[in-house]
């Protein structure tokens, strides 16, 4: 794809992103009138703007993680939660909620729900890697991720069986929630996004080489095993930061890379950047819909992303743009 075409598409997507952030500030449970009152200012700067930016950043992290997962495992159905980070994050939140209801622990307070989700998501991926004996085979790692997911889910079920009062809080985490995102959370996600994008761009030749098959990649002089581990670390970090702030949001990581595949022109680096932007647009757009469809009632954003992302994937599948090509 010529450079000017890429710039045009990038600009169009960034303009759409800014427009959605602006709309995210305008729409909410109450209207805002010009000139702003003190209350309007607080709603705008302390609630709606951080929420919109946060939803965009979390979506961008998930979109990037999805693009990494699909290229790394050479599987169009791979998503960021594949390696146990979703069930790990959920278990982390469950444990923190359980401990905090038992009594005041300084460590539990320090870690908090977000820290618990982040640590749980990373531990899930680490457990999958340990179970697979490192990254020697994609299939082995994927199976380990599935096994870890099942084990952690069983532990979650046990937790809610013993403490049914935690169920509602855990369900809110499972369906995703962007309403509690703060400026501090945005700062963390923004930094994580910049670091993850830079690292992924640096490591992107590995993803291109893997398209030719694992064996060919080994003959081209790259330290394949170490680089793949680094990519897994980036994937886990990006997913962990998003999960920690917004809970488990379905389909963004899976759908975002497919949304931009036909405009990325087969360039790995372009695909990674555009997937990240598409993830941000998808989550922020869904958040807008979640706030406005049944306003003033707000529905969980995870439900909207699942419906939107799922419908679009189905559309692409019917048009034959994803799936088996022969």
């Amino acid at each position: 794809m010529p450079k000017h075409q890429f710039s045009q598409k990038l600009m169009a997507l960034l303009a759409l992103s800014l427009m959605l952030i602006a709309l995210g500030c305008v729409f909410g449970s109450t209207g805002i009138d010009w000139p702003f009152t003190e209350v309007d200012r607080t709603i705008l700067y302390e609630i709606r703007l951080p929420r919109s930016i946060g939803a965009y950043l979390a979506g961008a992290l998930l979109g990037l993680a999805g693009a990494i997962a699909q290229s790394l495992f050479r599987n169009p159905l791979a998503d960021p939660y594949l390696l146990g980070s979703a069930s790990g994050g959920l278990l982390g939140v469950g444990i923190i909620l359980c401990l905090s209801s038992v009594g005041e622990h300084s460590l539990v307070t320090l870690i908090g729900i977000n820290g618990g989700a982040f640590a749980g998501a990373l531990l899930g991926v680490l457990a999958a890697l340990l179970l697979a004996g490192g990254y020697k085979s994609s299939l082995r790692l994927l199976l380990s991720g599935v096994v870890i997911g099942v084990i952690f889910s069983a532990a979650n079920s046990l937790l809610t069986f013993v403490r049914p009062d935690l169920y509602q809080s855990l369900q809110s985490f499972m369906l995703g929630n962007t309403s509690l995102i703060t400026w501090n959370a945005n700062l963390m996600m923004g930094l994580a996004l910049v670091i993850c994008i830079l690292l992924t761009l640096l490591l992107s030749p590995v993803l291109s080489v893997l398209s030719l098959g694992e064996n060919t990649a080994r003959t081209l002089g790259l330290p394949l095993d170490q680089l793949r581990l680094l990519l897994i670390a980036v994937l886990a970090l990006a997913t962990g930061f998003a999960v920690a702030q917004t809970g488990l949001i379905a389909f963004v990581g899976l759908a975002a890379p497919h949304l931009v595949r036909h405009i990325s022109g087969g360039r790995q680096r372009v695909q990674l950047i555009l997937s990240s932007i598409a993830g941000g647009i998808l989550l922020l757009g869904s958040d807008l819909l979640a706030k406005t469809i049944f306003a003033p009632l707000e529905i969980p954003v995870g439900i909207v992303t699942a419906v939107l992302g799922g419908s679009y994937l189905l559309f692409l599948l019917r048009r034959g743009q994803i799936g088996i090509r022969k």
């Binding site: 699909q70 050479r74 599987n75 169009p76 291109s208 398209s211 030719l212 098959g213 064996n215 060919t216 003959t219 595949r261 990325s264 022109g265 087969g266 790995q268 695909q271 088996i324 090509r325 022969k326």
Partner: peptide, 16 residues
């Protein structure tokens, strides 16, 4: 090294 055709160029390849 040139791999056997079935070992290389997976169908999920977006490379030109």
């Amino acid at each position: 090294w040139l791999a056997q055709n079935n070992d290389a160029a997976e169908e999920f390849s977006e490379l030109t």
